[in-house]
Design a protein around this nucleic acid. Structure first.
Length: 556
RNA sequence: GUGCCAAUAGCUCAGCUGGAUAGAGCAACGGCCUUCUAAGCCGUCGGUCCGGGGUUCGAAUCCCUGUUGGCACGCCA
């Protein structure tokens, strides 16, 4: 049940009918009705819904907004039973106050829909792919990856709930220079461990984890790569090393609650000839030319500042060429929309990627890139320098150990993607008990303990919901009714950070209700109704936390 | 240098397709447990929405400009 949406529709109809009558009566001259909003006002003194149509008409009518609002109001002579009153307020808003009992109907609906409450068919089964994290498999996952993981996974949950068909995908960068580097680094460590002296490559990965991986290979394979020709040895080491790194990444993400539908290998695009095909297609469209031994893409033809190399003089395709082939592949798989979550350091890549898609005949708007500002790690007031090459970074595993999966996910999703965020390690550890996530979880645990205390007869049969009329009760019910709209809006705007806020608001209203209204009262009818409200709140809190990938504990 | 993103309470951040008295969490201060979990509730304190212009019934929100910070501008990925 989506009561909020229903009522918005009813209000819209009322307004349209009133405008119609006003026009017929000659008080307004309407060529067209402006696209007005039916919104939930921030301040509850402004009613349940506010309509701004009078202000929008002010200019074309040459009248003051409040005068127009009065004209509209004059036409609304019959009050439907769901409507308590309409008032003109402020600069010309029409504020609608809804019969409270009209919202009470969500309570039995929530109990009935249970895990499905909040879901909708808003997305109409649109096929959407979300690609996120896609960290190089040459190291461990760091804080930036963690933020991307929490954002991407939660967005996927939200859009699924809102009726989109979602596939999660991880693009494995298992080709190219960084893999060569990875091989060289592993080789050096491998030889070192077997007592050889050798120079560590300058561009190599200095992290401890590479030594660890090399050690595992020595344990598993012994010295059988020792006397091989270097190129062949690297082949073997890369294969073994990649497997270990990818297993580690997959395992860590699973611990973080992220399960992918597809792990897509960059190398497979080389092997299957898809990159070649893509380049051929671009060639046929006249978008390629040769210069200084390399093959260039005329990116300037679709508005870029400069052209881009597709195939280097040494015959190896660039990362960009591979990425174009990859995105072409995505669209050819039939997704209506493709969403990428990228670090802000890739923003220069967005326009040319969209341009390339357009050049290949795909609507660039179907590729959406959510740019995520990087996470700056603080140790108190000191910035912690992070670099994968130097091996100095805090990993996702360490983060989960320090602050836990629940707090980490909640914390990352709470911020909008485009805010630069400082993550203070000391604060995260020391303040873990003051993290807002506990506030929400506590509300859930409180309800559980309350319900456990209820007697067997307390929940039987339908409650008389009309007994719930305290302000704290009405506000809480109103919030519960919001969930489906909240989810579909967050999905539509690709704004996962709205859900933690909803969860905090809901928890606050519950705590207020809990303080103001005793549930376990003598009166059996009131008791039943209040326990029913608490139970509905439990369901909504649990469903919201599930979207965030945060646990809903029954005891704390 | 050119381009992109940002700047809102002591701190971390919401609010931005123009809308009503700018919000939350944390921190600080003062109250509330013989009764359903005090990881809670109530109250107080806290603001040049970075500065300056402009657009209009109305600007934190849009435009111009300046300042400060982050990032990007490779035959790297």
């Amino acid at each position: 049940m989506n009561r909020v949406r229903e009522i918005k529709g009813l209000i819209r109809q009322e307004i349209l009918a009133a405008l119609d009558q006003a026009a017929a009566a000659g008080s307004l001259t309407l060529d067209s009705v402006p696209a007005f909003a039916v919104e939930v006002p921030r301040d509850k003194n402004h009613g349940d819904f506010a309509v701004n149509v009078a202000m929008l008409l002010a200019k074309s009518q040459g009248k003051a907004p409040r005068v127009i609002a009065q004209m509209i109001l004059d036409q609304m002579k019959v009050r439907p039973d769901w409507l308590v009153r309409v008032e003109i307020a402020g600069p010309g808003f029409l504020n609608f106050t809804i019969e409270p009992m009209y919202f009470h109907a969500v309570l039995p609906a929530i109990a009935k829909e249970d895990k499905d409450y909040g879901k909708s068919d808003f997305g109409g089964g649109h096929k959407v792919q979300i690609e996120f994290v896609s960290a190089n498999p040459t190291g461990l996952l760091h804080m930036g990856n963690a933020r991307g993981a929490a954002l991407g996974d939660t967005l996927g949950n939200i859009m699924s709930a809102a009726g989109y068909e979602i596939k999660r995908e991880y693009y494995i960068n298992d080709a190219g220079n960084q893999i060569e580097n990875f091989g060289k680094s592993l080789e050096a460590r491998y030889l070192e461990l077997l007592g050889q002296t050798c120079q560590f490559p300058e561009e190599g990965y200095h992290g401890e984890d590479i030594i660890e991986t090399a050690r595992h290979i020595v344990t598993a394979e012994g010295d059988r790569f020792l006397h091989m020709e270097s190129a062949l040895r690297r082949e073997f080491l890369i294969q073994a090393g990649l497997k270990e790194k990818l297993d580690n990444i997959r395992r860590t993400l699973e611990e973080f609650g992220v399960i992918y539908d597809v792990w897509f290998s960059e190398q497979s695009l080389h092997d299957d000839g898809e990159i070649k095909d893509t380049i051929q297609e671009l060639r046929e469209k006249g978008l390629l030319y040769e210069k200084e031994g390399a093959l260039w893409l005329k990116a300037t033809s679709f508005g870029e500042e400069k052209d881009e190399v597709m195939v280097r003089a040494n015959g190896v395709p660039t990362y960009f060429a591979g990425d174009i082939a990859y995105h072409r592949n995505k669209f050819r798989r039939g997704f209506d929309t493709v969403i990428n979550i990228w670090g802000a350091d890739h923003h220069g890549h967005v326009a040319r990627m969209k341009g390339a898609m357009g050049a290949l005949g795909f609507d660039p708007d179907r590729l959406e890139v959510i740019l995520m500002q990087l996470v700056r790690l603080m140790q108190g007031k000191e910035t912690v320098k992070m670099s994968k090459r130097s091996g100095q970074y805090v990993t996702l595993s360490e983060l989960m150990e320090d602050v836990g999966k629940d707090a980490a996910r909640f914390f990352f999703v709470m911020r909008s993607a485009d805010s630069q965020m400082d993550f203070d390690l000391e604060l995260a550890k020391s303040q873990s008990s003051e993290n807002p996530v506990y506030y929400v979880q506590y509300a859930h645990a409180r309800i559980h303990s309350l319900l456990k205390m209820a007697g067997p007869g307390d929940r039987e049969g339908e409650a008389d919901w009309s007994l719930l009329k305290e302000p704290a009760e009405l506000e809480l019910i109103r919030k519960l009714a919001d969930l489906p709209e909240e989810i579909s809006q967050a999905a539509k705007d690709r704004e996962p950070h709205r859900m933690p806020r909803y969860a905090m608001d809901l928890a606050a209203l519950f705590h207020g209700f809990y303080t103001d209204c005793r549930c376990l009262v003598e009166d059996p009818e009131l008791r039943k109704a209040r326990l029913g409200l608490a139970d509905a709140t439990r369901i909504v809190l649990r469903n919201t936390l599930a979207l965030l990938g945060v646990s809903a504990p029954e005891r704390m």
